[in-house]
């Protein structure tokens, strides 16, 4: 498998190699890797990459996947235009 060709995060174009490079450097946790690569913070809000990264951390450190932290879920559930939000109240009344 060519690690450069395996995309883990489609929003930020993060490959498997980007992940394993950081694990090799000594970064251990989801939060550290997320902050360096922006993985999990893109337009899809981590719906694909969170579990993929958890699996890589689990395999690398040989710990059960349920012991790998899950990052905080943040609003919004889906992207909404600023204009739509700013006009929402006006449209209601």
């Amino acid at each position: 498998m060519i690690k450069e060709d395996v995309i883990i995060c489609r929003c930020e174009d993060i490959t498997l190699k980007d992940i394993t490079d950081l694990l090799d450097e000594g970064y251990q946790t989801f939060e550290e890797i997320k902050r360096i690569l922006r993985i999990g913070m893109g337009a899809c809000q981590g719906s694909t990459c969170i579990s993929l990264l958890q699996r890589e951390i689990s395999n690398y450190h040989n710990i059960p996947i349920e012991k790998v932290e899950t990052p905080k879920v943040r609003p919004l559930m889906t992207g909404v235009k600023l204009k739509s939000i700013s006009e929402a109240y006006k449209n209601e009344s």
């Binding site: 913070m41 600023l82 700013s86």
Partner: peptide, 25 residues
């Protein structure tokens, strides 16, 4: 915050209104 922020941003920088909000914290 989301409500007030969007109103202020759209007033001062109207073009930004076309952008989707992804996350807040």
């Amino acid at each position: 915050f989301l409500d007030e922020m969007s109103k202020t941003a759209v007033e001062l920088l109207p073009l930004i209104g076309e952008l989707r909000v992804i996350r807040q914290w």
